[in-house]
Design a binder for these strands. Structure first.
Length: 418
RNA sequence: GCCGGGGUGGGGUAGUGGUAUCCUUGGGGACUGUGGAUCCCUUGACCCGGGUUCGAUUCCCGGUCCCGGCCCCA
């Protein structure tokens, strides 16, 4: 027997129905906000991803050499591809350019709860602006997308990378050290950070200042204790616009650092507390990537939502809808009714009813049982007595009630079952 | 890459150094148009490899996969 590769999943019809519902709800939100869908290749030149994220990520990519001896990789994310697409072909489009995508991504990591080697992301990029209203638009889109799935319990945290970064850069010239400091701040590993400060005899005052800021979270007012800067003004303006968008439940979190260099300003994350160690369901921020790929520097803001984790969080909240993949199941009462049954199922389908028919030549009892387990809303029993009148018996599978319905009215009656 | 806990029919389980229990599901049949029944028949499992042993599903080692956690998280 061939096993499924580690960290991958098969999705059955029931699970896919729920995943499609979630995905479709989020797509609709994107479309309504004026974002158009793009699709990019599932694999790219490895360089695209190492340029963006550094050589280290090659260890966690499905990287390979193709038959033409090119270094390729299954995409570990989709933002890089979208920006490459932008630089290659869309850079002269009117701004802002609003794009969204849905797709599978691959990372060679150790699977655990909410973490798979093949996973699915929905993301959006707004290209061509760095105004606070741009950032607010993208945050609102992300929040509305999550909301649209029906998820109740999630927290939105918004920060600004510039606040900590500029403080650290002002005192520490070594670029590598700056990155290291920011990484420790992100992890809130203040002990290790303190050790580093001692070892390098860095100013204690800076340590106190940045650790205080890294721990700051709460409403916008929490920034009142900070001196006014471009970054704090920017964040305040984002929050002001968000409230105009009807989004009031975002928190400031100045401790968000999001590892990579190209994030330039606002950064934000959404967590679903119901999940375990891997509770982040969305990450995003503003960045300038295009020049990395050989284009003009262009400001963008984007995010990516982990569809798998959203689905897990919804399951944890017990959000369950009854699964009724079939509206009607057509049962011939006797063998000589089969031809009538096929005609009826065909006309039901043509009229938009999800209908199935007995193909196993089962008897009445087993057909009713099958209709029940298949989740049909009703059974259509086709018998000679009713057919003499050009009618059939319709049995509501939820109540067991039966009535005779004219074939001509059948589709309408079935659709009316709700 | 590291750590912990697990792998018995499709799903859920019992049990054992001498190849396996029960439930459910699937397939077939009986019951001649209502029994979402009932009854009968039936398919189907000890993760893989090595070791110990007369004999391993059981004990030991390695691998693999699953679950959870660390690292990492684009």
């Amino acid at each position: 027997m061939i096993q499924r590769p580690r960290g991958t999943r098969d999705f059955g019809p029931q699970e896919m129905a729920e995943r499609r519902r979630v995905e479709q709800a989020m797509r609709d939100v994107c479309l309504r906000a004026g974002f158009g869908e793009v699709v990019t290749p599932t694999f790219e030149h490895s360089e695209l991803f190492t340029l963006r994220s550094g050589q280290a990520v090659i260890d966690e990519m499905y990287a390979f050499r193709d038959k033409g001896d090119r270094e390729m990789a299954l995409r570990p994310e989709i933002t890089a591809s979208v920006i490459r697409f932008f630089v290659n072909e869309l850079s002269n489009s009117p701004k802002p350019l609003k794009l969204y995508y849905v797709g599978n991504c691959f990372r060679y990591e150790n699977p655990q709860s909410g973490r798979f080697r093949e996973f699915f992301q929905l993301g959006a990029e707004l290209i061509g602006s760095k105004n606070p209203e741009t950032d607010a638009e993208v945050i609102a889109l992300a929040v509305n997308a999550i909301r649209s799935t029906g998820l109740k319990d999630f927290t939105v945290r918004v920060g600004h990378i510039g606040i900590l970064k500029s403080l650290v850069q002002a005192e520490i010239p070594d670029k590598q050290a700056v990155a290291e400091v920011l990484r420790m701040l992100d992890k809130e590993d203040f002990d290790a950070l303190g050790d580093m400060f001692d070892a390098r005899t860095l100013p204690r005052k800076l340590f106190d200042r940045i650790t205080t800021i890294a721990e700051m979270r709460g409403s916008v007012e929490i920034m009142d204790s900070l001196e006014k800067s471009e970054a704090t003004d920017h964040l305040r303006e984002i929050f002001r616009i968000l409230s105009l968008y009807g989004i009031e439940d975002c928190k400031i979190d100045l401790g968000i650092v999001r590892g990579l260099d190209y994030y330039t300003g606002m950064v934000f994350e959404i967590d679903a507390p119901a999940l375990g160690a891997e509770k982040q369901i969305m990450g995003g921020g503003s960045y300038t990537l295009s020049e990395l790929f050989g284009g003009e520097p262009v400001f963008s803001t984007g995010f990516a939502i982990g569809i798998d984790r959203v689905a897990l969080a919804l399951a944890a909240e017990g959000e369950k809808k009854p699964h009724t993949p079939l509206d009607a199941y057509v049962i011939p009462a006797k063998d000589d009714m089969r031809d009538h049954a096929f005609r009826i199922v065909s006309s039901l389908r043509a009229e938009g009813v999800r209908a199935d028919v007995d193909l196993m030549r089962r008897n009445m009892s087993k057909n009713l049982k099958y209709a029940s387990s298949a989740g049909a809303k009703c059974a259509i029993i086709v018998g000679s007595k009713e057919m003499a009148d050009n009618s059939v018996t319709l049995r509501d599978m939820r109540t067991g009630d039966q009535r005779v319905v004219a074939v001509g009215d059948l589709a309408k009656v079935v659709a009316g079952l709700g």
